[in-house]
């Protein structure tokens, strides 16, 4: 027996792929892409607070996102420089989750007959796959609704205030947004804590802060995002 075996899988020429080939590496990918997505979700929520300023300011904000960097950078180029890494993070996050789920299903062929008594696992942690799928489906709907306007008959390009108000005035659609954001909040509640473990950010002095950060982020994002359909339905905005 050698003193220490070299890595069992053998080195691939692309070490980044070699790293991603391991489950620990995939958890790193999930954590890092999760941070990117979390950053987007926070910025998205804060940016949308312009809804409370009124139509002109909201539309101006939407247009400003397209002219950032101009006139040196052409129209919408900056926006796409943000969107593409975001899309990459989204795809990596989903692929890693999918691959790890397969790994875990393979490792847990046998199930206990008795119902498990969970001592540490939270409802949020046990439903990450479900909340993730709900968020994925919601993002598809959300893009079709307010970015592309495919499912929004009154959609007017360049007028996000109007589009948001007509869409969320519908009780059914507003309910969908509220439900999806609760799922998103639960996903963040576990994910924003879990990611610190996955990338090994662990210091007894600050460990409790990781929980507080995750709980705080989940609360702020859910309240912020849900306020839009609620305020539009109650007629405060619109």
């Amino acid at each position: 027996m050698a003193v220490t075996e070299s890595p069992a899988k053998g080195r691939r020429s692309l070490w980044l792929l070699d790293l991603y080939g391991s489950a620990v590496g995939k958890k790193w990918a999930m954590a890092l892409s999760g941070i990117v997505l979390l950053g987007f979700v926070i910025a998205h929520m804060i940016g949308n607070l312009h809804m409370y300023e009124g139509a002109a300011e909201m539309n101006e904000y939407g247009e400003y996102l397209r002219v950032i960097g101009g006139p040196i950078i052409p129209h919408t180029v900056f926006l796409w420089l943000i969107r593409l890494p975001l899309l990459a993070a989204f795809l990596i996050h989903i692929h890693a989750a999918y691959a790890l789920t397969i790994t875990n299903n393979r490792a847990t062929i046998d199930k206990y007959k008795q119902p498990r008594e969970w001592l540490a696992a939270s409802y949020a942690s046990r439903t990450m796959r479900w909340s993730g799928v709900i968020v994925l489906l919601f993002v598809a709907w959300h893009l079709a609704d307010l970015t592309l306007g495919w499912v929004n008959p009154d959609f007017i390009s360049g007028e996000p205030f109007h589009n948001t108000v007509v869409s969320l005035s519908n009780v059914g659609i507003a309910a969908l947004y509220i439900a999806a954001n609760i799922a998103l909040g639960m996903h963040i509640f576990h994910g924003a804590w879990s990611l610190f473990q996955s990338i090994g950010v662990n210091n007894p002095r600050f460990n409790q802060w990781r929980r507080w950060l995750a709980q705080g982020l989940a609360t702020v994002i859910v309240i912020g995002n849900i306020s839009f359909p609620v305020m539009i339905l109650t007629g405060v905005v619109g």
């Binding site: 620990v24 942690s125 990450m128 879990s194 610190f196 473990q197 996955s198 460990n207």
Partner: peptide, 30 residues
């Protein structure tokens, strides 16, 4: 399987070994 940070292992452990070691392993692996 792969870790999803539930923390069930830590409570089940008869020696109450901490999840902190998992974070250390993840960091050292990278």
């Amino acid at each position: 399987g792969s870790c999803t940070n539930h923390g069930e292992c830590e409570t089940a452990c008869p020696k109450e070994i901490s999840l902190d070691f998992i974070a250390l392993m993840n960091k050292d692996y990278m």
